[in-house]
């Protein structure tokens, strides 16, 4: 447990520094949120209708941004060997990495999501739900993204491969979250979508570390 804390702190420091850390992810997020209305037309009533959805989808894209190098750098410089010989199993190492990724970039993005949605003219009453969805969804994105990053270990053009592996896995949480947000905004039943999102998040957190560890072992072999 002590070793896990030591590792988590290191991963946080690395995630904070990796490619500009949360600042870069936030900037990317802001860019996507500004670009989408330019493409879809800027009539306020139309924007307001899709605002929570845009804020939510852009989150998934921003989450992808810094994931590519999650395992790759440790693999390239030999640190992954050392992590594999530590007191905690590789599954725990994967959890620490994804958790740090979420804390350093997913959580700041979740706090930025309501700002973006308000900017686009969404109704203020959906904000608490949007933050909740963004926090839970961000956790799922971090773990699924870590899975993609681990599977792409050692391949050239890993970044693109990560996106191709991960984006289909992002589809369910995006659908569930958008369903909950839409329903809530329109006064329709919305708890089902939220519960499905939370369930998906729990499943991703519980299962993907097993796959990440297996993928790392495979890459080291």
């Amino acid at each position: 447990m002590k070793a896990f804390g030591v590792l988590l702190r290191r991963e946080l420091a690395l995630a904070w520094g990796r490619g500009g850390g949360p600042l870069l992810a936030l900037t990317f997020y802001a860019c996507v949120v500004v670009l989408l209305p330019m493409a879809s037309g800027r009539a306020p009533e139309r924007l307001a209708a899709i605002a929570p959805g845009i804020a939510w989808l852009a989150l998934a894209l921003a989450a992808l941004l810094s994931l590519e190098r999650l395992f790759e750098r440790d693999y390239e410089d030999g640190t992954l060997d050392l992590l594999a010989l530590g007191p905690a199993p590789l599954e725990a190492v994967a959890v620490a990495k994804c958790l740090a990724q979420w804390l350093a970039s997913g959580a700041p993005l979740a706090l930025a999501a309501p700002v973006a949605a308000l900017m686009l003219g969404a109704e203020p009453k959906v904000m608490p739900l949007l933050v909740l969805c963004a926090l839970a969804g961000g956790l799922a994105f971090a773990f699924l993204g870590g899975l993609g990053a681990a599977l792409a270990l050692g391949s050239k053009r890993g970044g693109l491969l990560v996106a191709v592996i991960v984006l289909p896995l992002f589809a369910p949480p995006v659908i569930f979250g958008a369903g909950a947000l839409d329903g809530y905004g329109a006064g329709l039943p919305w708890t089902g979508g939220l519960l499905l999102l939370l369930a998906y998040c729990v499943g991703a957190v519980a299962l993907s570390p097993l796959a990440m560890a297996a993928a790392c072992r495979n890459a080291l072999d």
């Binding site: 030591v6 410089d77 992590l83």
Partner: peptide, 23 residues
């Protein structure tokens, strides 16, 4: 191994401290 397992962006002490505590 062949590689030293050190992150170029971190200070020598941060790396040595982490690797020591980890093992």
């Amino acid at each position: 191994g062949h590689q030293d397992g050190l992150k170029s962006s971190r200070t020598a002490w941060e790396e040595l401290r982490f690797q020591t505590l980890w093992t």
